[in-house]
Structure formats: structure tokens, C-alpha cells
Write a protein that binds this DNA or RNA. Structure first.
Lengths: 200, 200
DNA sequence: CTCACTTGACTACGATCGTTGTCAATCCTA
DNA sequence: TAGGATTGACAACGATCGTAGTCAAGTGAG
């Protein structure tokens, strides 16, 4: 029997490795989403995960690799929630916008750490700057492409960047409690802003 | 003759101390505005300033004190430029908005490091988070108060936070080259957005 | 039962950090 | 010119970091 499939404490090596990896990512999310980027040291992650450094380097090349894994997992979750919401919405711009905004607000209400990681961490950590500057422009481009062709390209870029900034600032303020506003009002406002921007 | 007023190399002690302080702040600005927050170590600042650590602690209690001094100086400069521009503008909302936006754009074109410090550093450095979360809300409140009273308060807050985010994102993208757009277009767009938001 | 694999606690190394201290060289005032 | 103020180069301290290694104890397949 090969080592990888030998059972140990009821599970195979691959399972245990995967479980440890999940545990490390969860601990990374906890630290990154609450205490910030400088709190995510290898030692702190291992202490939180109740694992030793050995297992850290079993799953990740270095500290930055973990940070990227945390960010990517949250980004993937957000992406999945978004496409699911959009898939179930009626095929009309207003409904699509509302579905998208609602799904994101629900995500960050359900787990604010994820919102923090998505919106704030890329600004805070050098290792995540690139990731953040890939994701947001993608979103910006999405808006950009929805804008009517009658608007010239420069104007479309300006609108897209502005709307993206408005949304992230609204979500960020909502996350940290600065923007004390009912959830529905936030969603309504974001949707109306999206639709207003899409009008010629 | 008291030590403080004794001349040395042609200047008094107070003058030399002030000169060293300026030099340290300038070095802090250089590092914070280009290499980012983690590049601002006491050693790096002193090396850049061609001074020794001794003089660092002559002017600043610790690293964070320097960071705050750098930020506050840039914020003060921006504030001064803003009030000067607004003072010289005609007393009409459109002109005020244009004067304000133009003065800020000129500031960050003249010295992009200052724009980076104002907009990005507070998000990047824990020591500056509080400063950033004091300045931007102030600006947000300014917008908030300009909005017509016919809009209810929640809506006014939403608009103010959104507009602030849009502006900072536009400036940020312009700063880092992502938003490749002529200066005048940027100014125009920001002014139009400000005025549009102020309409009922 | 035995032995190889697995685990956890722990130590170790080199680097960098903030901060403080030492000491000789330099400069002005008295 | 003598002596105290000032300067600059540099060492030193403790802390933390990323990363790698050691070693005894636990565990299950053959």
C-alpha cells in the first residue's frame, strides 16, 4: 500500500493534508480579515490553526503564498455567489444589477472578514496589491462594457472607474460601521447608481 | 549665551534642528510616497536623509510619529491649496467645484508622492488609518452638507460616501497610470459628477 | 510485534526592526 | 587656546520574523 493512501486516524494522508490546508487558510482569513495584514505571520497562523510550522510549509511555499490562497478563495466564493445570483435573475439590466449587489452585500454581512479581505486587504498588503489590481479592474471593465456605445471610450473609462470607487467605498464604509444605514437602503442606492451610470 | 541660541556653522541650534526635521520628513515622504509604508523604517529614513538615528529621535518620538508628521504636512498643504483655490473662485457651485478639483489634480501632478500619501498610505499603514478615516469623512461631510435639504439624511450620506469613493478611485487610478486619460477630461468628469450629485 | 511513517513540541539560524548607548572627531565661545 | 557643546559613525540590545531542522512519541500495515 502506498504511503499516500495508507489510512491514519481514519483518513488518508491526502485527506489530512487537505484538512490542514483548509485549517491554515481559515486561520489566515481570520487574521487577515480582523487583525489586518501585519498580524498574518507564519507563527500566528500556525498558533491559530493549532498546527506547527512544519505543516505550514507542507501546504504553502511561504507566507505570501498563504495570503494569496486566502484571497483567491474568498474571491472565488464571491465570484460563485455572483454568477449564481445573476443566473437566477431575470435577464434585464435592473434585475441583474440588483441580484449582483444583493449577493455581494449578503456575502459581507454573512462574513465581514471576507468583505475586508476582498476590499481592504489588497490595499493593505504588498503581496495582494497585484491581485486587487486585477480584480477591481475586471469589475470596472464589466461596467465599462455595459455602458452604451454612444459614449466615447474615455468617458466610459471615467464612469467605470468612478462607479467602482463609489461601490467599494460604500461597501467599505458599511463594513466598518461608518455608514450606518439599513441594508436595503444600501442595496437600493447601489442599484440605482449602477443604472444611472448605465444611462446615456 | 544659552546653548539654544549659540551659533554653529552659521546657524542656531533651533535652526539646525528644524532643518534636520524637515529633511527627515522629506525623506519620509519620499519613501512613503514611492516605496510604500513598509519601506519607511527608521534606518531607511535616516539613510535617505543622510542623518543618523540620533537625530531621528531628536525630532520624533518613534517611527509612527514621523509617519503622522509626513501625512499631516501633506494634508495641510492640500488643505491650503484647496482654500486658496476656492477663495479665488467665483462664488458659484460650479466654479467652486472646478476650483477644488483642479487644485487637487495640480497637487498630485506636481508631486504624485503627495497624492499617494494622501489617498493610499492611510489604507496601507495601521498608524495612518485613523488619520485617513478622519480626513475623508471630513470631505464626505463637506459634500453631505452641500446636498439639497429635500433629500433625506440617509440618502445624503449614501451619496456623499459614494461620491467620495468615486473621486478617490479616479484620482488613485490617475496616479498609478491605470486611468490613461487627459488631465482636463479627468477634471471635467469629476466636476460634472460633483454637480450631478448635488442636483436633487 | 516490528518497523517505517507520521505527528507535535521544540530549537536554531540569519535577517531586520526600533531604540539606546558609546566614543572619537569637530566646532564655537569664553 | 582650553573646554564644553555638537556631530557622525557605529555597536549593542531585545524582539520578531521567515524558514529549516531535530527528536521523541504516537500509529497502523505487514
Amino acid at each position: 500500500m502506498t504511503a499516500a493512501h495508507r489510512t491514519w486516524a481514519g483518513t488518508t494522508l491526502a485527506d489530512r493534508r487537505a484538512a490542514r490546508r483548509r485549517q491554515l487558510i481559515e486561520s489566515g482569513l481570520e487574521l487577515l480579515g480582523t487583525a489586518g495584514t501585519q498580524a498574518v505571520s507564519v507563527r500566528a497562523v500556525c498558533r491559530t490553526a493549532k498546527l506547527t510550522e512544519r505543516y505550514f510549509y507542507e501546504s504553502f511555499d511561504d507566507r505570501d503564498t498563504l495570503l494569496l490562497a486566502v484571497y483567491d478563495q474568498v474571491a472565488q466564493e464571491a465570484h460563485d455567489a455572483l454568477v449564481a445570483a445573476v443566473r437566477d435573475a431575470r435577464d434585464e439590466l435592473a434585475d441583474l444589477a440588483r441580484a449582483a449587489v444583493t449577493s455581494f452585500v449578503e456575502l459581507i454581512i454573512d462574513d465581514p472578514r471576507k468583505g475586508t479581505v476582498l476590499l481592504l486587504a489588497p490595499l493593505t498588503d504588498p503581496a495582494l496589491v497585484r491581485r486587487g489590481s486585477e480584480l477591481l479592474p475586471n469589475f470596472t471593465a464589466l461596467i465599462h462594457d455595459q455602458l452604451p456605445a454612444s459614449i466615447d471610450d474615455t468617458e466610459r473609462r471615467l464612469i467605470a472607474v468612478g462607479v467602482t470607487g463609489a461601490l467599494t467605498n460604500l461597501f467599505t464604509a458599511y463594513l466598518n460601521g461608518t455608514l450606518d444605514v439599513p441594508r436595503d437602503r444600501l442595496v437600493d442606492h447601489c442599484v440605482r447608481m449602477l443604472l444611472a451610470a448605465a444611462r446615456p
